[in-house]
């Protein structure tokens, strides 16, 4: 489903050149739950942005759904993104002026769904996530856990192939964090591919595989359970 070969990202300013990703190669199959881990500044978010088609790499190949997309224009990337990828962010990134319903509805608007179809889909997902009673509330009226639940609803409403989650529990307490992780796990069990950037070993334990980055390079690529095991034995 996703294949990266020697993926490189270099940020240039007038005087400094920073290599955020240095020839990163890996593959992710459909239905996998992969966690990307590493210390701050190791290039996790940069990798996630490229995988999420928010940014282009400076070099290497990126094959997404069997298309080489590393040189796609912004428009091409947006088209591919809206049909296939759902995003969950650490700080939820809900639009404060829109209600829960309207926030979730947003991806469907850009996909050109009719109003009745949008209503049906949004209500379906609200039921599924058990937050139907909050549909007319605004983000600032909700708790962090509820906001992230809405963000997950928004990520899945268009039934994407992949969900990219950037520290999805980073702003939540452990109870709400577990709730969100369970949601992602359920989604994965139902066939959605999940790629998650995290600092938390606990969250990473939900994943089937962990890609570990350091200074823009992959240092290990393990089964999540083995990783957890080895880290506990140390």
């Amino acid at each position: 489903m996703i294949k990266s070969v020697d993926l490189t990202k270099v940020f240039r300013t007038e005087e400094v050149e920073t290599t955020a990703l240095n020839k990163v190669s890996f593959e992710i199959k459909e239905g996998e739950f992969v966690a990307i881990m590493g210390p701050s500044g190791c290039g996790k978010s940069t990798l996630l942005n490229i995988l999420g088609l928010l940014d282009n790499p400076s070099g290497g190949e990126y094959v997404f759904l069997e298309q080489e997309v590393s040189n796609y224009s912004e428009k091409q990337r947006a088209n591919l993104r809206k049909k296939n990828i759902g995003f969950v962010f650490q700080n939820f990134n809900l639009i404060d002026e829109l209600s829960v319903f309207e926030n979730i509805e947003l991806p469907l608007i850009y996909l050109g769904f009719s109003a009745s179809e949008r209503k049906k889909r949004v209500e379906e997902v609200l039921e599924q996530m058990q937050i139907m009673h909050r549909k007319n509330h605004f983000p600032l009226q909700l708790s962090g856990g509820q906001q992230q639940r809405v963000a997950v609803c928004r990520a899945v409403v268009a039934k994407p192939h992949i969900i990219l989650a950037d520290e999805p529990t980073g702003n939540l307490d452990s109870t709400h964090g577990d709730e969100v992780m369970n949601l992602l796990e359920t989604l994965n069990k139902n066939g959605t591919t999940i790629i998650m950037v995290t600092h938390s070993q606990r969250d990473a334990s939900y994943a089937q595989r962990v890609i570990r980055l350091f200074d823009g390079q992959i240092v290990t690529e393990d089964k999540a359970t083995e990783f957890v095991l080895s880290s506990t034995t140390q």
């Binding site: 999420g52 928010l54 912004e74 428009k75 947006a78 088209n79 993104r81 809206k82 049909k83 995003f87 990134n93 809900l94 639009i95 404060d96 002026e97 947003l106 991806p107 850009y110 996909l111 928004r154």
Partner: peptide
């Protein structure tokens, strides 16, 4: 900015 950014993440084209 956040609104615009999210709309873009969610697939809004510049044109839209």
């Amino acid at each position: 900015a956040k609104e615009v950014g999210m709309r873009k993440v969610l697939g809004a084209h510049k044109k839209a």
